[in-house]
């Protein structure tokens, strides 16, 4: 017998889910909650095997519910969501959810998912599983180690010309843009590279091989 608590802020969704779960003989719906806070309290009180929880809920969203439940109880959390986006999935999993199912799944899939996580495994909807697993546990995106990588092409051009000793006015003539704009690029690139003044800019450029002192 798998005991289940159901949390969703939409009455109609709860009603439909209840109807579905009641068709499965070894499932037992022991409680329902209409918001995140109530969900956490109900789980703590009833300690069901599985919490089926909507991602978007008032008071406390599903991600936070998953985190608190995973921390405080042994109840397994299945997130039910409209969002197939990796970021949500990854966030849910790292918050301690055991499974993540899209709301437009077939009813058979939902039943299967509940069984899987109740058995101690993890479950993700097929549409999302591959990428999310690939993503999960790894820091994503390109966060450059080297601040130089954060410079735009334009900022790199300005950096080089400034390091070569050209004034803003001269750079402006060279790149056909206003001195004011050059000034913005220059301020931004110096901030990105952590440079305080022109001397540091030149030292940086020499160190990076952007300019050479022999030239």
């Amino acid at each position: 017998m798998i005991t289940i608590v159901l949390a969703d802020d939409h009455h109609i969704v709860r009603q439909a889910m209840r109807a579905l779960l009641e068709t499965v003989p070894d499932f037992k719906l022991v409680g329902e909650a209409g918001d995140g806070l109530e969900a956490v309290r109900t789980v703590e009180r009833l300690t069901p095997g599985v919490l089926v929880c909507d991602l978007m809920m008032p008071a406390l969203n599903g991600l936070e519910v998953a985190r608190q439940v995973a921390q405080r109880t042994r109840t397994r959390v299945l997130i039910l969501s409209m969002h197939s986006n990796d970021a949500y999935v990854s966030e849910a999993l790292s918050n301690g959810a055991a499974g993540y199912v899209l709301k437009d799944c077939q009813s058979s899939e939902l039943i299967h998912a509940i069984r899987e996580i109740a058995a101690g495994r993890r479950y993700l909807s097929p549409q999302i599983s591959e990428r999310a697993i690939e993503l999960y546990g790894r820091k994503f995106g390109n966060m450059p180690e080297d601040p130089y990588q954060t410079l735009t092409t334009r900022e790199r051009e300005v950096l080089q010309l400034a390091a070569e000793g050209r004034t803003n006015a001269q750079i402006s003539e060279r790149l056909f843009i206003s001195p004011r704009t050059i000034e913005t690029h220059r301020a931004n690139l110096m901030r990105k590279l952590g440079l305080q003044n022109h001397g540091e800019l030149i030292r940086y450029a020499v160190k990076r091989g952007i300019i050479s002192l022999d030239g």
């Binding site: 978007m56 991600l63 986006n85 990796d86 970021a87 949500y88 966030e91 995106g141």
Partner: peptide
């Protein structure tokens, strides 16, 4: 919704 739920970086991705 991601912008509110997960912040700028996720929303941008």
């Amino acid at each position: 919704a991601m912008l509110d739920d997960l912040g700028l970086l996720h929303a941008l991705f």
